[in-house]
Write a protein that binds this DNA or RNA. Structure first.
Lengths: 193, 193
DNA sequence: ACCTGAACACCGTTCAAGT
DNA sequence: ACCTGAACACCGTTCAAGT
C-alpha cells in the first residue's frame, strides 16, 4: 500500500498546527470563559511545552484573534445553512420557526457559552467587537430576507428581524431554557400576521 | 467646632474598607472586564500593597462575589425606582416607553459593560448566575406589573414582559446605539395593543 | 484594626539550542 | 519546521511582623 508523503502528521504525532491550538482554545473558552484560555494550560493539554506556542502565534492575543475569526466564520456559515431553501412564504415561515426552536431551546450549552463569552468581551475588545458585528450583520440579513419573503416591506422586515434576533439573544442571556411558555407566546407575536 | 470621633477615616487616609475595594473592582470591571479585576492592580490604584487586600477578603473570588451582590442590589433598586408611580394605564404606558429609552439608547456605557461582563460570566460561574437570576426576576416582575396595569391577562403580561426585556438586552448585545430606526419600530410593536 | 514585606506558585513571553 | 529548557516579569496567596 502506498503511504502518502508529506501530508498531515499521523494521529499519534505531537507535531501541532495553529488549528490544533485554536480548537483547544475554543474548548477552554466554552468551559471556563476567556480567562480559561491560558497558554500554559493549553500546552499541557496538548502535550507540549508552552514555549512551542510561540512558534504558531505571536502571543496570547493573536490566538484569541484567530479564535474570534474562526468563530465568526462558523456562525456565518451556520446561519446561511439554517436559512436556505425558502422559495415560498410557507418555507420562510417554517425556517423562522425552526430558528426559534434552535436558539430558544439552546440544546447546545457549549455554543451558547462561547457566544456569551465573546459578546461579554466585545465592549472592551476591538477584535471581538468586529467579529460580533460581522455575525450580527449576517444573521440580520438572512432573517430579514425571510420576513421579506413573507411579504413585509423592507423597513418592516428589518424591524422584525431585529426583534426576532434580539429576543432570541436576550432570552439566552436570561437563562435560556426557563420561562418556556412565555417565550413561545412572545415568539409567536414576532412571526405572526 | 466639634470634630466627630471614631467615624469614617478622613479623605486623605490610606485606611480602607471592603467597600473601597469593591468600588475599585467595579471600575476595573467596567473598563477591562472581569480579567481586569486583579488584586495587585487594585492595590496599586488604591495606594496600598496587595497583601492588605487579604485583610478585607478571603481571596479574589470573595471580592468578585461581593461585587456581584452589590451589582444585583443596585440593579434591583434601579428597576424599582424606574417603575414606581404608575397608578393609571397612561402612567404605565409612559413608564414602559421611558424604560425603552433608558435601555435602548444606552447612554451609560459603563453600566452596560458591567452588565454584559457579568452575564458573559454567568454560564460558568454559579455566583454570577444567581445574581443574574435575581436581577432578571425583579425586572420581569416589575415590567410584567406594568403590562398588567394596561389590562393584559397574567399570561399575556408575562409574555410581553419577557419580550420587552429580552429585546432590550439582545439589542444591547448587538451594539446598542446602532440600528435605532429598526429598534424603535420593533419596540413599538411590543408595547402596542 | 489595618497594613507592610518577603516568600512561593502560576502564567505570559523571549530566546538560544535542539531535532 | 516545530519543539525544549531556562530565564524573567507579573500576579494570587500566605503569613509573620509592624503600627
Amino acid at each position: 500500500m502506498a503511504i502518502p508523503l508529506s501530508t498531515r502528521p499521523p494521529a499519534g504525532s505531537k507535531r501541532l498546527d495553529a488549528a490544533a491550538w485554536i480548537a483547544a482554545a475554543l474548548e477552554a473558552l466554552a468551559a471556563e470563559g476567556m480567562a480559561g484560555v491560558r497558554v500554559e494550560r493549553l500546552a499541557a493539554s496538548l502535550g507540549v511545552t508552552k514555549g512551542s506556542f510561540y512558534w504558531h502565534f505571536k502571543d496570547r492575543e493573536a490566538l484569541v484573534a484567530a479564535l474570534l475569526e474562526r468563530w465568526a466564520a462558523g456562525r456565518i456559515a451556520a446561519i446561511a445553512e439554517q436559512t436556505r431553501d425558502h422559495g415560498t412564504p410557507a418555507d420562510a415561515r417554517k425556517a423562522l420557526l425552526a430558528l426559534l426552536d434552535i436558539y430558544a431551546r439552546t440544546p447546545n450549552r457549549k455554543g451558547l457559552a462561547v457566544e456569551l463569552a465573546i459578546r461579554g468581551l466585545a465592549p472592551g475588545h476591538a477584535t471581538a467587537k468586529r467579529a460580533v458585528a460581522h455575525v450580527d450583520a449576517a444573521r440580520l440579513a438572512k432573517v430579514g430576507a425571510l420576513f421579506a419573503q413573507l411579504g413585509k416591506t423592507t423597513a418592516e422586515a428589518d424591524a422584525r428581524a431585529l426583534l426576532f434576533y434580539a429576543f432570541l439573544f436576550g432570552q439566552s442571556l436570561m437563562g435560556g431554557g426557563k420561562r418556556l411558555a412565555a417565550a413561545k407566546r412572545a415568539a409567536a407575536k414576532i412571526v405572526a400576521d
